[in-house]
Simulated scan of single mutants.
Amino acid sequence: MAVQVYVALGANLAEPKQQLDFAMTALKTLALNHTFTVSDYYRSKPMGDVIQPDYVNAVAGFQTTLQPIELLDALQHIEQQQGRLRLEHWGPRTLDLDLLLYGQQHINQPRLCVPHYGMKLRSFVLVPLADIAPTLILPCNTSLESLISVTMRDELQKLIDLS
């Protein structure tokens, strides 16, 4: 059975825009035909106290028949293929893929929590997600649009040149 999923993408090392482009190609292989959509790319400031370059972020949405842990494994495999090393919490990375939503399910397992724990507070997740799913209602029955403030929109810089 197919389920609609949303995945956040972020990169700030090794040509971040190209990292996201490569990730999009890989994510499309997980999607059912003609269901893949992606937001614009945005530049955002890094979280935490680690000094590092700005991030390039986006959100992809698609339908898949993969079960949640299978999808998580596939996302982590894509990260590893693109050189992801988990060295420092909120540190720089070649690619970060976070499963934001898996249908309307609430999942709380040791390896996977969905909806993603921090998504409601992160402009670099909410604004791109609204690009592709503006009328989305989250599993908590909150509208996505109601979570996005003017300040959140102002925190991001849309990248017009995606070449």
Rank of each mutant, 00 (worst) to 15 (best):
A2V: 09
Q4A: 09
Y6S: 09
Y6K: 02
Y6I: 07
Y6C: 05
L9K: 02
A14F: 03
A14K: 09
E15I: 00
E15C: 06
P16Q: 06
K17W: 01
Q18D: 14
L20P: 04
D21M: 11
F22W: 12
A23H: 04
T25S: 13
A26Y: 03
L30P: 01
L30R: 03
A31Q: 03
N33M: 13
F36M: 09
F36H: 06
F36L: 01
T37C: 02
V38M: 04
V38A: 00
D40K: 11
D40S: 14
Y42T: 01
Y42R: 09
K45N: 07
P46D: 08
P46S: 02
D49C: 13
D49Y: 13
V50R: 09
V50N: 07
P53Q: 10
D54N: 14
V56D: 04
A60S: 09
G61K: 00
F62Y: 07
Q63W: 00
T65S: 15
T65M: 12
Q67V: 01
I69S: 13
L71W: 06
L72K: 05
L72Q: 06
L72W: 02
D73F: 08
A74V: 08
L75S: 10
Q76G: 06
Q76L: 14
H77D: 14
H77S: 15
H77N: 15
I78W: 00
Q80V: 02
Q80K: 15
Q81M: 12
Q81W: 07
P92H: 09
R93K: 13
R93Q: 06
L95H: 07
D96W: 01
D98N: 08
L99S: 10
L101N: 05
G103F: 11
Q105V: 05
Q105R: 12
I107T: 07
N108P: 03
N108R: 15
Q109R: 10
Q109E: 11
Q109N: 03
P110C: 02
C113Y: 03
V114Q: 06
V114L: 10
H116Q: 03
Y117M: 14
Y117K: 15
G118E: 12
G118I: 04
M119K: 10
M119I: 05
K120Y: 06
S123Q: 04
S123C: 03
V125Y: 05
L126F: 03
V127I: 08
L129P: 00
A130G: 02
D131V: 02
I132A: 05
I132C: 01
P134R: 11
P134C: 07
L136G: 06
I137D: 08
L138W: 02
L138F: 07
L138Y: 00
P139H: 11
P139G: 14
P139K: 15
E145V: 08
S146R: 12
S146T: 12
I148M: 08
I148R: 00
M152T: 00
R153C: 06
D154M: 08
D154V: 04
D154H: 13
E155A: 11
Q157W: 07
Q157D: 14
Q157T: 15
L159R: 01
I160Y: 12
L162W: 11
L162Q: 15
